[in-house]
């Protein structure tokens, strides 16, 4: 039921094109408006800096800048909720999870993810943010 949620302007960033597409499909399944898809951290940061992005789905391991570095950079210069950030990582250990959440991520998803469940999680998050 994507129409129930507001279509947040979303950025998707991952260096792997297949995963990038999967993340984009997932975002669309969640009713999000994917306005930008990039393949490295620096490009992601540039898009976010330009403004207008409400949600960024960032992979941790990317060339140029990691997702966590992008997160740290935007959290240091903007209000806590602009934009919302969901971190996606292939790493399973607790230290990475803690690092992600401590840097100010709104949620943390590990690969491999189920597109259906990821989409449902995104919908829940949007409801929480809107509430």
């Amino acid at each position: 039921m994507p129409t129930e949620n507001r279509a947040l302007r979303t950025l998707v960033a991952d260096d792997d094109s297949d995963i990038r597409s999967l993340m984009e499909i997932t975002a669309i399944m969640a009713g999000l408006d994917v306005v930008s898809v990039v393949s490295d951290g620096r490009a992601a940061l540039e898009v976010i800096e330009r403004g207008g992005i409400e949600l960024a789905i960032l992979d941790v391991s990317m060339p140029e800048m990691s997702g966590l570095e992008v997160l740290a950079s935007i959290r240091s210069s903007r209000p806590r909720t602009e934009p919302r950030v969901v971190i996606v990582s292939a790493s399973v250990d607790a230290a990475s999870l803690a690092a992600g959440l401590e840097s100010g991520a709104d949620d943390y998803v590990t690969k491999p993810f189920s597109p259906r469940r990821f989409a449902e999680r995104l919908k829940e998050l949007i409801e929480e943010w809107d509430a």
Binding site: V92, K111, P115
Partner: peptide, 16 residues
């Protein structure tokens, strides 16, 4: 961790 899990993520995601 990254190189093996990333392709598996694609496989499992697209199969779903």
């Amino acid at each position: 961790s990254h190189e093996l899990r990333t392709p598996l993520s694609s496989i499992l995601g697209y199969l779903e």
